[in-house]
């Protein structure tokens, strides 16, 4: 156990020394990785913030049933009973025309205008929450309810949100695709930089092998270098994304002020940032492992050929 710890300590020390020996080159390598990770990270953050703005999925499942102007209380009660019994309805709320008018006056500060109307123009309505979140099920419920007696109009309140959600799904897929491609790029960058380090330290590797170093001993410092490089790149990507969110928020603040509202993009949560750093460290490790293993296999085959 002590020997194992001593070897890890040595590998870490060696990695630290090598980083200290070429700080500029190492910083630029981490920058390349950081920029590569920043792109999908920003796309992910955009998707997350738009999804939050869209009020998320349950907004998609709301249908407004506007009753005919001549619908009686008895007919409204019959519709309420049908909604209670319907398996596709998770809940519903009756909004009387007077309540709707009061709400209109309060919300939009147009009391004078509304008071000037000869009579209440608003119909009675039901706000229905669908049990299913699938767009097809919601549309079927809307279509069915629109055919019920005394239902003048059945409107999917958040059709726009459904469209946005579909767009967000597409953006999520794009972020995933871009993330996968750039993860492969990160792997290639690490493979290449660790490959160069191996070339620079070829003599040391060969001497170490001659005096009894195992593959594990030779791999270890390179694996640590890969992990450090990947983690540094991930941390830089999180920092870049944080700066971008800050900049966007500065711009949004001015726009939102014009509309009398507050609008701010949310930064990457700490847990997600740690996941990004961990994932890029893992990719760094994998790139380094592939580079060293390739070199060791080549040395082994040279031994076979001798």
């Amino acid at each position: 156990m002590n020997a194992w710890l001593a070897q890890h300590r040595r590998a870490l020390t060696l990695t630290g020394r090598q980083i200290a020996a070429s700080p500029v080159a190492r910083t630029f390598q981490a920058l390349v990785i950081g920029v590569a990770i920043t792109l999908p990270l920003l796309l992910y953050l955009t998707v997350q913030n738009l999804a939050r703005l869209a009020g998320q999925s349950d907004a998609d499942a709301r249908i407004a049933l506007y009753l005919a102007a001549d619908a009686t209380a008895k007919e409204a009660a019959a519709i309420s009973t049908r909604l209670d019994a319907h398996a596709g309805v998770a809940g519903h709320r009756f909004v009387a025309r007077d309540e709707a008018l009061r709400d209109l006056k309060q919300r939009h500060d147009i009391a004078d205008l509304v008071d000037a109307l000869p009579k209440n123009p608003l119909p009675d309505a039901f706000v229905v929450r669908a049990a299913s979140l699938r767009p097809g099920d919601i549309e079927a419920l809307r279509s069915e309810a629109s055919a019920w007696p005394k239902v003048a109009l059945a409107q999917l309140d958040s059709a726009w949100a459904a469209r946005l959600d579909a767009g967000l799904d597409l953006a999520r897929s794009l972020a995933l695709g871009l993330g996968t491609v750039l993860a492969a790029a990160l792997l290639a960058v690490t493979f290449n930089t660790i490959g160069l380090q191996i070339v620079n330290r070829r003599e040391e590797i060969e001497v170490s092998r001659l005096i009894g170093a195992t593959h594990g001993f030779i791999r270890r410092p390179f694996l640590y270098a890969g992990v450090v490089q990947g983690a540094a790149g991930g941390a830089l990507a999180c920092a870049f994304a944080g700066v971008c969110v800050f900049w966007v928020n500065e711009q949004l603040r001015g726009v939102a002020a014009l509309y009398g509202t507050e609008l701010a993009a949310r930064a990457l949560p700490a847990g997600d940032a740690l996941a990004v750093i961990g994932f890029s460290a893992l990719l760094g490790w994998l790139g380094a492992w592939l580079a060293v293993t390739r070199h060791l296999l080549r040395l082994d085959s040279q031994l076979d050929a001798r």
């Binding site: 020997a3 001593a6 070897q7 040391e204 170490s208």
Partner: peptide
């Protein structure tokens, strides 16, 4: 010789001990 020319005399000699995980 197969010495490591970027390492000190001490580090060159210590290499076999590092490989076996000898306490520093």
């Amino acid at each position: 010789h197969k010495l490591l020319y970027d390492r000190s005399v001490f580090d060159n000699v210590r290499l076999p001990l590092d490989i076996t995980g000898f306490p520093p």
